[in-house]
Simulated scan of single mutants.
Amino acid sequence: MESAQTTPEGVPAAAPGPAVTRPEPPSVPVPADPAPTARRRGRRTLALLAAAAVLGVVGGVAVGYGVQAQREPTSLPPLNQVDLAYPAKPAAKGQEPAVLAAAADRGLRTEGDLRKLLLPKPSGAKDVPFAPDDRWRSVASYSNTFTSPSGAFEYLLDNGVRRVASTAWRVGQYKTVEINLVQFRSNDRLGAADHAAEQRGYEEDDSGYGEPIKGSTDGRTYLLPVDKEEGYLDVYEARAIFHRGDVMVQIFVTDTKKVSQKEITSLAERQLGRL
């Protein structure tokens, strides 16, 4: 883990902001008149809000937190109290229900298998090598998609990350879709909202304010400028970033042809509807 840097006064200095990017594979020289090569575009940065207390944590403690953050929650015993259940039917109009109807309690959806809330892979789509086989991505693995993995790891733990569900697929020869559901613990930190706001801030610096996602408080979609490099196919990318409750959502669509606003909007609205 990276050691904390200090100023002359002895106050820990903020760590450099990690970038949300999976390291690109080494560039391969292109022979004369070949078929163009497709490449993956890098991700944008995540500012590291590192507090002195977090930077001072020793390696063993940080690893322990990482292991604990990736464990499945232990079921609690039933409450020793009667008549504490969800009503069979919603309360009549104008009446305040004694308890929230199960169908309206979004918390129930995210307390089970988070992977079931991921959009399913469409018919005919193919697997991609960077997607986890069981659709669980460890916090360490997710942190490795940042340019400063140790800084990202500390940031996520400090904000109460709980678990990450992830899926990805390929359509045709080059188009890939990747979705990450990053769930945070319920505490005094608004982990999901903060993580989403951080990512949107960097997208807006590079791609403008994007388009709002219907049904989301402040979710946005972004169409990135085309990425050109001699000897490679052009790379187009669209992204969606939003949160609902304790889950922050990232969607990335990458292709060698322009990604439409309609496509990224549809993916975002469908994923939002499952949370």
Rank of each mutant, 00 (worst) to 15 (best):
E229K: 14
S141C: 07
F130Y: 13
R270S: 12
K121L: 06
R22Y: 05
N159C: 06
Q250T: 11
L119Y: 04
R115Q: 10
G245V: 00
A19Q: 09
S141R: 12
K214W: 03
A98V: 12
I213L: 05
V171K: 08
R109T: 07
L156H: 04
R39A: 12
E24M: 10
N187P: 03
Q199E: 08
A104E: 15
H195L: 13
G160Y: 01
T74I: 15
G172Q: 02
A91H: 05
D234A: 12
R270P: 02
E237W: 01
R41H: 03
Y65R: 14
G160D: 05
Q199Y: 02
R220L: 09
L181H: 06
G112Q: 02
R274D: 00
L223V: 00
T6V: 15
D105S: 08
N180Q: 15
K116Y: 02
R244N: 04
G231S: 06
P149S: 13
A268M: 06
D206C: 00
A38P: 09
D234F: 03
V161K: 03
S260M: 07
L181K: 04
S3R: 15
L84N: 10
S123L: 13
Q173F: 02
T176W: 02
E237R: 15
N144A: 15
T217S: 14
A193S: 14
G59M: 07
E203Y: 06
I251A: 00
V11A: 12
L114C: 10
T176G: 10
G151D: 14
P87I: 07
L114H: 05
K175R: 15
Y65F: 11
S75T: 13
K89C: 08
P8N: 04
E230G: 08
S266E: 11
V171I: 14
P78T: 07
V54P: 05
N187Q: 09
A192C: 00
V99R: 13
L76P: 04
W169R: 02
A15P: 07
F130I: 12
K258P: 00
P31E: 11
E72Y: 02
S166I: 04
T221G: 10
E9I: 10
T21N: 00
A38Y: 05
D83N: 15
R39W: 06
Q81E: 11
V54W: 04
P97R: 11
T45W: 01
P36R: 10
S150C: 07
A91Y: 02
A35Q: 10
N159P: 01
V11H: 07
G201F: 06
D246E: 07
S166D: 09
D127C: 05
L46F: 03
D227Q: 14
Y86M: 05
V128C: 13
Q70D: 14
Q70P: 00
T256Q: 07
G210M: 10
G42K: 02
